[in-house]
Amino acid sequence: MPDRATLEAFIAAVESNDHVGAIRDFYTEDATMQENLAEPRRGRQLLMDHEAAVLKRVAAVRSRCVRPVLVEGDTVVIHWIFEFDLPDGKQRRIEELAQQTWSGNRIRTERFYYDPAQREAK
């Protein structure tokens, strides 16, 4: 179970848009991430590389945690809103729930639940 200070530091890192640093600093080496029902990505380095590639495709991102954050033992659920500015001037808003399993003060598994239709830029 994560301690509250670590959980708040993780949220602050994501909200500061240091997504790659958040993975580096708060995920286990063998962590997994899964998008809805897709096959999970495995391993912290792969997760960081994937996140860096996503960020290279956008002009800017704004990340916000919608509280409350739900914690029950090693399970944490965070409601996120991500707003992306695309290079062509369009915007994309993704609202998701992230269900995480923590091992002490590090995230071992994470699964994102969101409507894929949100991927369409406006």
Rank of each mutant, 00 (worst) to 15 (best):
S16H: 10
G89Q: 08
R44L: 07
A31D: 03
R62M: 15
M48F: 04
T75M: 05
Q99F: 15
L86H: 01
C65L: 03
A60D: 06
V54F: 06
D49R: 10
I23P: 15
L7V: 01
T28C: 10
D85Q: 13
S63L: 01
A31I: 01
A52G: 13
T75G: 01
R62I: 15
V77F: 01
L46R: 10
C65H: 03
A13K: 15
N17M: 10
L55I: 10
V14N: 11
A38I: 04
A53R: 04
T6P: 00
Q45Y: 12
D85E: 14
S16K: 14
F112V: 05
N36W: 04
E39D: 09
M33A: 11
V71Y: 00
R42L: 07
N36S: 06
T28W: 13
A5W: 03
R24D: 14
R93S: 06
E15P: 13
Q45T: 12
R93A: 09
D74E: 14
N17L: 07
Q99W: 15
E95S: 06
W102Y: 09
F26T: 03
L37Y: 12
E15W: 05
R111Q: 05
E83F: 08
Q34N: 10
L46W: 01
S103I: 14
K56V: 05
G43L: 07
R111T: 02
R64H: 02
D88F: 14
E110I: 02
W80T: 02
V58M: 03
V54K: 03
W80E: 08
V61W: 00
E51L: 04
Q99H: 15
L55Q: 01
C65A: 07
R93F: 02
V76R: 00
V14Q: 11
S63H: 02
